[in-house]
Amino acid sequence: MNKRVKSIISDALIYIFLAFMVIIILIPLGWVLSTSIKQEVDIFAKPPVWITDNPTLQSYRDVLTGSGIPKAFLNSTIVGFMTVVFSLIFGGSAGYAFARFKFRGKKVLSLYFLMSQMLPLTVLMIPLYYMINDWGLIDTKIGLSIAHLVITMPMVTWMTKGYFQGIPKEIEESASVDGCNTLQTLIRILMPLLKPAIATTGIYAFVSSWNEFALANVLTRTDASRTVPISLSEFSSYFKVDWGDTMAAAAMITIPIVILFMLVQKHFVEGLTAGAVKG
């Protein structure tokens, strides 16, 4: 067989395979959207149908006016932003130290930062609860965002370390010849270069906080701090089993995350792989 024909055929097969995989990836989200615009009577139709004949936005209206989701949305946004700020300050400066300085115990410390990324949240949950309670921060947004540093700090440190390493040391050195000290260099020279990286890291931290369930489940009590995953999980509990509303709420908390990701996907991918590939 002609080599070119062979390669065209295998290309076609790969495209079919990729398209098939994308469909599988998107099925759950598609089913969420499909259910969310159905009338109550059509939700349990047998056999199930993908596209309803009588679409309605009633479920969305229910969620917006009669549920805790809008408040949870606000809470999640605030908690997310606080987590981003804290983890960029603390994790970013640690990442800079790892990337730029030689010091004793560097290996041990990076071990420590890496290991802490892998700790089971169910293990930390109980003591964290008691601690946050003793600080009087149970059921507060700030308490939850402090707890979320557990999941964001190590990764932010690791990602920023990768970014700083990607900037040639010479740039900084030439700056220090010009009389800038380290911090001035950091702010005046490095920050502008790292804008996309900072955005990516920030979004990573934001998404982690937005998605986190186990800690938020115990650290929140009322709608003063309840975040979207908790609010959603309460939709399908004891006394209301309204799949239409549940799916509308699920769609509403997922779409901002997906859009956010699509906006920065290129940098995001680079950031996530940087730590692992470059080491």
């Binding site: 998107l26 399908s236 549940t246």
Partner: peptide
């Protein structure tokens, strides 16, 4: 392709679980 496939990783865990729970219903 990469970002379309990446969607299943990015969506909140609670949504992953809830949507699959709904897909996995036995009857209908």
């Amino acid at each position: 392709w990469r970002s379309l496939i990446f969607i299943s990783w990015i969506i909140p865990g609670v949504v992953k679980a809830t949507s699959w729970k709904w897909l996995f219903r036995t009857d209908g």
